[in-house]
């Protein structure tokens, strides 16, 4: 459909009014009957929406940064930049005022009893899910005690996470892991939540080489790991089960 069905097509000004939600019965009637003008309006709406999606708060400091600004944790030079931004950003001023009110409001103290037991978070859309890959048996360490179970490998984007288990001389199980990534620095100091059976079992800290470990791992239960980098990146490895090594009992 490349032309208007009516003698006079709707003007851009009229379509602008429709875009802003100003309803006019005659124009609505025109649109309902005319695919050409409807398509023009749809094109304008798409443009409008694309601008909003791409520009929405694009250069605003994060709420976390606003909180750190409020508490005085930011470096002075960064604080100056935020002060300048706040002068021209109503939305950030509102958020800063909101956090200030929330922090000052001590009227609702927690109840003496009945704070909830944490549940394992399932933040749909917030985390990158690393895919567990089967490891060929040949890659399992051989000719020495342990690991008792085959190592595992998980991947997402350009991040690979290696996991393995060892038996310690104390009879406990040691979970060992390493993150490999071209940008390993962003994972240094990352925090790992280890969840099993819906409960938080341990917190692990990734060292400067991307390695982490936890003694006391319970190999009998599937585990979920959530790796939180200081950059805000969140990677989850779900349903980690270490298969029994076929050779472990022979050694």
């Amino acid at each position: 459909m490349d032309e208007c069905r009516y003698p006079l097509a709707l003007t851009d000004d009229q379509l602008e009014l429709l875009l802003e939600g100003e309803v006019d019965a005659a124009m609505q009637e025109h649109l309902s009957q005319c695919p050409f003008c409807s398509a023009r309006l749809a094109q304008m709406q798409n443009f409008e929406q694309a601008l909003k999606v791409n520009l929405h708060r694009w250069n605003c400091p994060t709420p976390q940064e606003l909180s750190e600004y409020h508490i005085g944790l930011l470096l002075p030079e960064r604080a100056v930049i935020l002060t300048k931004h706040l002068e021209s950003c109503r939305r950030c001023r509102d958020e800063l005022a909101e956090v200030e009110r929330f922090l000052e409001d001590d009227s609702r103290l927690p109840p003496p009893r009945g704070l909830k037991k944490p549940q394992q978070p399932r933040m749909r859309g917030y985390e990158l899910i690393a895919r567990l890959l089967p490891m060929p048996p040949s890659l399992a360490l051989r000719g020495r005690r342990g690991p008792t179970r085959n190592p595992l490998q998980a991947e997402v984007d350009d991040i690979t996470i290696f996991l393995s288990l060892d038996e310690t001389t104390r009879g406990t199980t040691l979970l060992k892991g390493q993150i490999a990534s071209p940008d390993i620095d962003q994972w240094s100091g990352a925090l790992i939540e280890l969840w099993q059976q819906g409960s938080l079992q341990a917190m692990l800290i990734v060292n400067e080489n991307g390695m982490f470990r936890h003694e006391g791992f319970q190999p009998g239960y599937p585990a979920d790991l959530r790796i939180n980098a200081a950059t805000g990146k969140l990677v989850a490895i779900k349903d980690v089960r270490f298969p029994e090594s076929p050779s472990s009992e022979d050694e």
């Binding site: 929406q49 909003k52 999606v53 929405h56 708060r57 605003c60 994060t62 709420p63 976390q64 606003l66 909180s67 750190e68 409020h70 508490i71 958020e95 909101e98 956090v99 929330f102 922090l103």
Partner: peptide, 19 residues
Amino acid sequence: KACVSSEIALHLRKISRID
């Protein structure tokens, strides 16, 4: 408390950006 509040604010920012 501020960190928890920030996470809620960030989430609301994101959903307000979604069409």
